[in-house]
Amino acid sequence: MTAFAALTSRSVVLPQGNIDTDQIIPARFLSTTERAGLGKHAFNDWRWQADGSPNPEFAFNQPQNAGRQILLAGANFGCGSSREHAPWALVDLGLRAIVSSQIADIFRNNSLKNGLLPILLDETIVQALMQHPDDELTVDIEARELRTPNGDVHPFPLDAFARTCLMEGVDELGYLLLRDPQISKYEEHSHAS
């Protein structure tokens, strides 16, 4: 995982609530043994029409949204399946942060492992941000805050451990592997032996 560098971007807005992982990437694209290249299937059934052409109404197909790295989404984003293909697809699509008033547990966990930052803000703030998608938002991961060009500062919660992992680009597996002595001791003393 690469370190989460400074992020300043305009946003793409998907106001709908409860956007589930089947919308983020439909199950029929999970028949893969790779993790790369899933971006073309991100939001597949909303993004592409039956004949394969882009749906012009869908936010990610609108030219002004090209290259934007922040998604402003309705509440309970990422509910449903545990498929890590969902954050893989979104990262491959170019996203680096998801802002919502609620983000489903497993999806949030999976996102953090892929350098995709889940930003939880109050619904009123998310709604207000959605009114100005062309504002350049700055995400300061060290200060744990999102700043708007007119000077608003919105602090967001981020676990200290997750922040360190993101900032240093290290993953949890390395940390866990270093706990080998404690794991061995646990295995000796518990019924888990």
Partner: peptide
């Protein structure tokens, strides 16, 4: 509980998970 694929790797490698 359900986990993502990165965590499947964690469990394979260490039989453990990081959890709050």
């Amino acid at each position: 509980f359900g986990i993502g694929t990165s965590e499947v790797g964690h469990v394979l490698a260490t039989q453990c998970l990081l959890q709050r």
